[in-house]
Deep mutational scan, measured.
Amino acid sequence: MDETGKELVLALYDYQEKSPREVTMKKGDILTLLNSTNKDSWKVEVKITVNGKTYERQGFVPAAYVKKL
């Protein structure tokens, strides 16, 4: 869990989004878990840094590609 009590997951593999509802992640990324009720895909939040500014983006990733921490 992070400092706000949200559950975290670790990306086990790289994943490139295939639709606007998904998010891209790299192996080793730590993501905030938002919903894990679907056995196939979990909703997560990723933090992306562009030019020194951090943005948050929500979307789905394959459940088999992440592990709860």
Rank of each mutant, 00 (worst) to 15 (best):
T37N: 12
F60H: 06
N51C: 12
K43M: 15
Y55D: 04
Q16H: 13
K6C: 15
D29Q: 13
S36C: 14
F60S: 03
T24G: 08
L8E: 07
P62M: 04
L34M: 06
L12V: 06
Q16A: 11
E45V: 14
Q58H: 07
A11T: 04
N51F: 07
A64K: 13
T49V: 13
R57D: 01
T49Y: 10
K43C: 15
D40P: 02
E22W: 06
P20L: 08
K43V: 13
L33V: 05
A64M: 11
G5W: 10
T37P: 03
L31F: 05
S19V: 05
A63F: 01
P62G: 03
R57C: 09
R57E: 03
N35S: 12
D14F: 06
D40I: 12
V61Q: 00
K6Y: 12
V44F: 03
K43T: 06
L10A: 04
Q58D: 04
D2L: 14
V44K: 00
T4F: 12
A63G: 03
E7S: 11
M25C: 07
L34Q: 01
T4S: 13
L69S: 02
S36T: 09
S36K: 06
K68W: 06
V46G: 04
L34Y: 02
K47R: 12
M1R: 12
Y15P: 01
G52D: 06
K67M: 14
V23P: 03
V44H: 00
A63W: 03
G5Y: 13
D14T: 04
K6M: 10
V50A: 10
L8M: 10
A63I: 04
Y15A: 00
K26H: 10
R57S: 05
G59F: 08
K6R: 14
Y55W: 09
Y55E: 10
T49S: 11
V23S: 03
V66P: 02
E56F: 15
T32Q: 08
R21I: 14
K47N: 08
T32G: 06
Q16P: 04
K67F: 08
V66M: 05
A64H: 11
Q16C: 12
L12F: 04
G59H: 03
D14E: 04
P62H: 04
Y55N: 05
K47S: 12
K6L: 12
E56N: 14
D40E: 12
D14W: 05
K47Q: 11
Y55G: 04
D2G: 13
T54H: 07
K6P: 13
P62I: 07
A64G: 09
Y65C: 15
K6W: 10
E45S: 15
T49L: 11
M1H: 14
K26V: 08
W42Y: 05
L8N: 05
V50E: 11
K39V: 10
G28K: 02
V44M: 01
T32H: 09
L10C: 12
G5T: 13
I48K: 07
K68H: 09
W42I: 02
E56C: 15
K67Q: 12
K26N: 08
E45H: 07
K26P: 02
T37L: 09
K47E: 07
D2Q: 14
K26Y: 09
A63L: 02
G28F: 04
M25Q: 02
Y55S: 09
G59P: 01
